[in-house]
Simulated assay, not measured.
Amino acid sequence: MDSARTRAWLRTAALYLDRDKDRLTRLDLAIGDGDHGVNMHRGFLAVTAALDEWEQDDLTAGELLIAVGDTLVSTIGGASGPLFGSSFRAMGKTLSAPGPDDDSRRFAAALSAARASVHRLGAAEPGDKTMYDVYEGAVDAFTRVADTGGSLEAAARAAADAADAGVRATELMQARRGRASYLGLRSVGHQDPGAASLALIFHALAHALEAK
């Protein structure tokens, strides 16, 4: 994926997170600190502001995503900053390294690296009611399409659909990680806000690629 499409993805993600910040905050009020929507909005607002500066630097897609990761770590509060930041940094490092020539398979590898970084940092497993529940299905869906020769756009749409399914699944789970885990059974019946934010980012990717 080239830098122009990467910029379009990031700007679209910022718009989606701005639009849904109140919903994300309500989700977090139910099982967390109640600041997730504000934090994500602040982080991606900082990204969009930086994009104007980075425009002059002629950064590659990989370099852009590494810079995004650094920005998110420094501007998003709580656990979300390191988790989202490390995942973007992992994507950027993978895209900056030698890999498959095919765009879809190359980006699938980047998403796999992002998922692995969240797994390492958060020690989350499928079913823990975290953003990892979205990463698990979305990356698998993207990779399946990429491995069968599907386009980047088709893979991103499959990932976005799988991300939605992952968010819905968190509603029925009991949280086993993070602040929500302190609620025990009371966490059941609420979607995980981090998972919901990640699904928006996957939808932004699909939208940006389809709008090229």
Rank of each mutant, 00 (worst) to 15 (best):
D52V: 13
D52H: 13
D52G: 14
E53H: 14
E53G: 13
Q56E: 13
Q56A: 15
D57L: 11
D57C: 14
D58V: 01
L59H: 02
T60K: 13
A61G: 09
G62Q: 02
E63Q: 14
E63R: 04
L64Y: 13
L65D: 03
L65I: 04
I66S: 04
I66T: 09
V68R: 02
V68Q: 07
G69T: 04
D70T: 12
D70R: 12
L72Y: 11
L72V: 10
S74N: 15
I76K: 01
I76P: 02
G77R: 10
G77S: 10
G78M: 11
A79V: 12
A79N: 10
S80L: 00
P82Y: 12
P82F: 11
L83N: 00
F84D: 03
F84H: 07
G85Q: 09
S86V: 01
S86D: 07
S87D: 04
F88H: 14
A90S: 11
M91H: 12
G92D: 04
T94P: 07
S96P: 10
S96G: 15
S96E: 15
A97M: 09
A97N: 04
P98K: 10
P98Q: 06
G99Y: 02
G99S: 03
D102L: 02
D102N: 13
D102F: 03
D102P: 01
D103A: 13
D103P: 12
S104Q: 08
R105V: 08
F107Y: 12
F107M: 06
A108I: 08
L111P: 00
S112E: 13
S112N: 09
S112F: 06
A113W: 01
A114Y: 02
R115G: 05
A116S: 15
A116N: 13
A116I: 07
A116C: 08
V118L: 03
V118D: 06
H119L: 09
H119I: 09
G122S: 07
A123F: 04
A124Y: 01
G127K: 03
G127P: 06
G127F: 11
D128L: 10
D128H: 14
K129E: 05
K129F: 09
M131L: 15
M131T: 01
Y132D: 01
D133Y: 04
D133F: 02
Y135D: 00
A138V: 13
A138S: 14
V139T: 11
D140F: 04
A141N: 07
A141K: 09
T143R: 12
R144H: 05
R144C: 14
A146D: 01
A146H: 09
A146E: 05
G149D: 10
G150F: 00
S151V: 05
S151D: 01
A155T: 08
A155V: 05
A156C: 12
A156G: 11
A156R: 00
A156D: 07
A158K: 00
A160C: 02
D161I: 11
A162M: 00
A162Y: 08
A163G: 12
A165D: 14
G166V: 09
G166I: 09
G166A: 06
V167H: 05
T170E: 05
E171M: 03
L172Q: 15
L172P: 03
M173K: 02
